[in-house]
Each structure stands twice: as structure tokens, then as C-alpha cells.
């Protein structure tokens, strides 16, 4: 397998009033070694659950209903993450695939020191590592993420540190076992803008240093522009467009992507009202048999109701799910 990760036809369901409800459908994605894939979309469109499904961390009552996620594991060979048993999964979590979360303030256990929690990440995968070795490794990664006063930070509890520092520490914990894939689930959303920029810069630097692949989940196209080579746009549980970052920004094919790009605020358009896409994301579980974006689309026609458009290649390596580009219907 050439890619590091190949997700094929991922489907995720949940239980609502004892009925199965589909939250995510027909999601296929590839991540090449060393590549950063950006996943963008509004809240509730299925970005985070895709990431959680890869590590089998979906909260009850969500579950994967079908699909494959082939991962090129350095230790286990090519494995399907979704059908991996718990023990094997545990050896991959935090060692080969690491995750950074949205809320740094609540992602660390409040009653243990930073040092204890960092060392833990080593302990789970290297049972016989020496205390001194562990300590040195902690110091080393904290240096990489530009934490000042390292020894003092190691002895601190999470509530004594700021959100930006905590997110750096979360990144350090993610990097401590030099993973091949890093999943960043909205890592900058909870931080203020200046800190956001620092964290993004840091992530870019580390990606180059460590040559890790990154899956970068965000709702902010601006962040995507700064980090990702490849972009997948999610809408209401489906991928509606996928292309290289450059292609996507210059030639968006899907009306939703177009709207997202238009709604990025720009200093040059002073005085103009911010653009926003009318309407809201339909609630999960109402996956309709026609185009999900229909109700909010400015190009919508009656003929759009004939079915769910298929994700087709509209330009080389540029995929889009819209009848304006292809009449093909998903079966």
C-alpha cells in the first residue's frame, strides 16, 4: 500500500430512540506519507467522529456500521483499524497514531502533574523504560514545542497553566512516541487568535521535522490554507468536495465550498457585511435521498431532487458531489 491510510466507504451510525440513525456515509479518504489532509466543515457534519472512529474512540451509542480504514502500521503491517481488536488498537493509539484535541483545558487529567501524564504516554508503550530516560524524553519534546521553564512546567498541574501552554503540552504528548500519523481535531478552535497562529506554526514545523502525516480537522478554511496540501470538505455526513488545497481555493466546484470561501473575512472588504451561507446544517439522522445541501444552495433547481449526486472527478484529482458537474446519481 502506497498510502499511509486509506479509508474506504466509512459509515457511522448512532441510536436515537432505539432506532438506528446514519451520521456518516460514503466517506473515503487517503493520506499519503508526510502529507497533511485537511478536513473542513461546519459543526455536526461528521469530521470529529471520523477521526474518533479511526482510533475506536467513538462514544456510546455511536458505532461504525461498515467500511474499512487500512493503515500502514510500522509494527503490525497493513491493518484495518476498524476491525482491529482492542489490544492491537491500544498498541497503535498514542504510539503510531496520536491525537490532539479541541479543548486543551479539559484534555488533561486535573489531578495529576504534567510530568506524570507525559510519562504515562511512554509507559503504556515502553514498559521497561528507565525513569531517567522518560524524564529526558519529556524534556526533549517540551523543548520541541517551545515550552519555557520546562522543569517548572513538568511539576505543574493543568489548572496552573494557560490554554496555549496546555495545547503545546498536548502536542508534546502526541509527539512523544514519534507517531506516523497525527490526528488534530480542531486544535486551535479553543485558543485565542495570536496563540492559534503560534500553534499552527509549531505544527507545521514539527510536521516537517518529523515527517509525520497529519489529519487536520477544522471548521476554519483559513487554518486549512496554512496547513494542508489536500482538503476534504464535509457536509452533513458526506464528503462534498475533495481536491488539493490550491485547486480548492482557486476553483471551488461545490456551491458549499464556494460559500465557505466567500465567508472568510478579509481586511480589504472593509465596511461590507460578512457573507454567510443561509440556513443551517440539517440535523444528523435526516439523511435525505437527495442532495443534502439543496435547501441552502443558491443554484438549487427542482431537478436536483432526483437523487443524491455522486462524488465524481470534475478535474484531475478534484472530486465534487454536485449535479452542476455531473448527472450521475449515487445508488
Amino acid at each position: 500500500m502506497q498510502n499511509l491510510l486509506e479509508i474506504k466507504d466509512l459509515k457511522i451510525k448512532t441510536l436515537r430512540n432505539k432506532e438506528e440513525v446514519m451520521l456518516l456515509d460514503k466517506v473515503s479518504l487517503n493520506i499519503a506519507p508526510g502529507q497533511c489532509l485537511g478536513i473542513v466543515g461546519e459543526s455536526g457534519c461528521g469530521k470529529s467522529i471520523t477521526a474518533n472512529a479511526l482510533l475506536k474512540l467513538l462514544p456510546y451509542p455511536l458505532s461504525v456500521s461498515s467500511g474499512k480504514a487500512m493503515f500502514n502500521s510500522p509494527s503490525l503491517g497493513t491493518v484495518d483499524l476498524l476491525s482491529l481488536e482492542e489490544n492491537a488498537m491500544r498498541s497503535i493509539r498514542g504510539r503510531e497514531i496520536a491525537m490532539i484535541f479541541q479543548e486543551p483545558m479539559t484534555s488533561l487529567d486535573p489531578i495529576f502533574t504534567i510530568e506524570r501524564q507525559m510519562k504515562e504516554a511512554l509507559e503504556f508503550h515502553h514498559a521497561h523504560m528507565h525513569e531517567k530516560e522518560k524524564h529526558d524524553r519529556c524534556v526533549e519534546v517540551l523543548k520541541q514545542v517551545n515550552i519555557p521553564r520546562i522543569e517548572q512546567t513538568l511539576g505543574s498541574y493543568p489548572h496552573q497553566l494557560s490554554g496555549g501552554q496546555l495545547q503545546r503540552i498536548m502536542i508534546a504528548i502526541a509527539l512523544i512516541n514519534t507517531p506516523t500519523l497525527l490526528i488534530a481535531d480542531e486544535p486551535t478552535t479553543a485558543l485565542d487568535v495570536t496563540i492559534q497562529a503560534q500553534i499552527l506554526e509549531l505544527m507545521n514545523k514539527l510536521k516537517h521535522e518529523q515527517n509525520a502525516s497529519v489529519m487536520f480537522i477544522t471548521h476554519d478554511l483559513g487554518v486549512i490554507a496554512e496547513t494542508s496540501e489536500q482538503v476534504a470538505v464535509f457536509y452533513s455526513g458526506h464528503i462534498v468536495e475533495e481536491a488539493s488545497a490550491e485547486e480548492l481555493f482557486y476553483r471551488p466546484a461545490h456551491p458549499y465550498t464556494e460559500g465557505l470561501i466567500k465567508s472568510i473575512s478579509s481586511l480589504n472588504e472593509k465596511g461590507n457585511q460578512l457573507y454567510s451561507i443561509p440556513g443551517n446544517v440539517p440535523p444528523g439522522g435526516e439523511l435525505k435521498s437527495y442532495c443534502h445541501f439543496l435547501d441552502r444552495c443558491k443554484y438549487a433547481e427542482d431537478s436536483c431532487k432526483r437523487g443524491l449526486p455522486k462524488l465524481v472527478e470534475v478535474a484531475p484529482k478534484h472530486y465534487c458531489r454536485c449535479f452542476r458537474h455531473s448527472m450521475e446519481v449515487e445508488v
Binding site: L57, F101, S107, E120, I173
Partner: peptide, 10 residues
């Protein structure tokens, strides 16, 4: 959140 983060560490 931190429980998920602990699990994600393996």
C-alpha cells in the same frame, strides 16, 4: 474529555 485523551495515549 481527558478520559478520551488518556485512552488516545494507549
Amino acid at each position: 474529555d481527558f478520559i478520551k485523551a488518556v485512552r488516545a495515549k494507549g
